[in-house]
Design a protein around this nucleic acid. Structure first.
Length: 412
RNA sequence: GGGUAGAUGGCAGAGUGGUCAAUUGCACCAGACUGUAAAUCUGGCCUCUUCGGAGUUCGGGGGUUCGAAUCCCUCUCUACCCA
């Protein structure tokens, strides 16, 4: 790797771009200077709990920052929260989370690395599951850690105090109070110089500083980044709300979901998810917002799938929506041939069998509304009881969902 | 441990013996309009339906009643107050 570090102020300018808060800038500059003179890269920590399956664009905000550190020659240290995932991070939550089983955690952790690799160079990163140390802990070790803080300090934290003081108070399960301490202890274990996280992580990151100081280490720099809002434009992007775009998702999904975000979100997404200069963003947003959104969608797809795929997506987009055509790639759905009589099938039955609607009632309703059509001419059934001719390969559509029917002959 | 309040559809939250498949808001799904944006309007949002209805729902179980989300008993869970 490169040993020629840029001057501290130049690094600082790059690294502070887009940051929400830094604790503390002066210390940060000093650390950068010291690392430059000693030729020793900074150890930059970022932790992620393997609680679900998809790493999404929200995670990539700090991950992109981590990559910048890598590009500048510093050492990325990825903490996989195999131990903390069992506790559940109370950050930004208004209710407690449920712990996961160790099997799920192990499975998720593996999956996570693959996804993180799309943003960060994991081959040169240090990957540390925190179960490595917490797993060896005994009760007395835990007591020592617990003795380092007070109930008052924990309650000082906004998430907890809100839950504590809200009118019907929301339970704070005792083990949740442990989370910040554990995350902080990770910093001690790996001797972090810098820790990255979303703004809601500030408390946890600060605990790391305290614990490091207590352990005789120079305290880490806490660098927080803005929270990305999800495709709904309101809530924080998250796995549980379904307003996210996964880094592992297909280009088509990423492009389409980006196109469906509300306009006011555009600037935020450009700033947090692309490297575009501000002037560029201003120019784009001054123009037609539909075009700006296409540019954003293409840029996101380019990052994860490459420029050629992004171009293909743009072209496909134009074809599908501007010219009302079908996309090149259509998912197939198998329907048993036994459902058919003389190559026809009741439309309602077809819709449910294809999974376009959950129940007959819903399918009936959608038929009444004229939401369903099929074939190259987008034929609509005459009424909700109509029988439609379907061949192997016929395209059926309901709303924005498009499927190609594959008649499955192997059945009785 | 003692006391009080409460548990209703994805969420919030009405309803306190028949007119309740259950007001309303949000979320969600479609249609019109569009930029798969927003706003707006329309229809839908437990299951089945020959569109007349039918069936299964209001934390679990049992009971009272011609009839229960609503009353009684019991169990489970939650919050609050006191210890």
């Amino acid at each position: 790797m490169s040993h020629a570090f840029l001057p501290a102020d130049e690094q600082l300018a790059i690294l502070l771009r887009g940051a929400a808060h830094v604790e503390k800038v002066d210390e940060f500059r000093q650390k950068l200077e010291r690392s430059r003179t000693s030729g020793k890269p900074l150890r930059v920590k970022y932790g992620i709990d393997p609680t679900g399956f998809d790493v999404h664009l929200g995670h990539t905000v700090p991950l992109r920052k981590l990559r910048q550190f890598q590009e500048l020659g510093h050492k990325a240290v990825l903490i996989i929260g195999t131990a903390t995932a069992q506790v559940g991070d109370p950050s930004g939550r208004d209710s407690s989370r449920m712990g996961l089983t160790t099997e799920q955690i192990a499975k998720n952790a593996e999956n996570y690395l693959i996804q993180i690799a799309k943003v960060v160079d994991v081959t040169v990163a240090e990957v540390r599951p925190n179960g490595d140390w917490f797993g060896k802990w005994g009760f007395s070790d835990m007591l020592k850690l617990l003795a380092k803080t007070t109930v008052q300090q924990i309650l000082a934290r906004e998430d907890f105090s809100n839950r504590f003081h809200s009118v019907p108070s929301v339970p704070i399960v005792l083990h949740e109070c442990l989370y910040p301490l554990m995350q902080g202890w990770d910093s001690v274990e790996i001797q972090a110089d810098v820790e990255l996280g979303g703004t809601e992580q500030l408390f946890n990151l600060m605990v790391g500083r305290d614990l490091q100081r207590d352990a005789g280490q120079p305290p880490q720099i806490c660098l927080t980044l803005p929270i990305l809002r999800g495709t709904d434009g309101v809530k924080k992007m998250g796995k549980s709300i379904g307003n996210y775009i996964g880094v592992g998702e297909a280009a088509k999904e990423q492009f389409g979901k980006t196109m469906s975000i509300p306009d006011p979100l555009l600037r935020e997404w450009f700033e947090l998810l692309t490297d575009r200069p501000t002037a560029d963003i201003d120019a784009l947003l001054a123009g037609h917002l539909g075009d700006a959104k296409k540019a954003l969608a293409a840029e996101i797809v380019t990052f994860y799938h490459g420029a050629s795929v992004a171009e293909a997506m743009r072209a496909e987009w134009a074809k599908q929506f501007a010219q009302k055509g079908d996309p090149d790639q259509i998912d197939e759905v198998k329907i048993a041939s036994s459902e058919f009589a003389d190559g026809t099938i009741p439309a309602m039955k077809l819709i449910v069998a294809a999974g376009l609607c959950k129940s007959n009632g819903e399918a009936r309703q959608k038929l009444k509304e004229g939401a369903f059509n099929y074939g190259p001419d987008r034929t609509q059934p005459a009424d909700e009881k109509a029988v439609v001719p379907i061949e192997n390969g016929t395209v059926i559509r309901l709303g924005r969902k498009i499927l190609r029917v594959r008649i499955d002959g192997n059945n009785k």
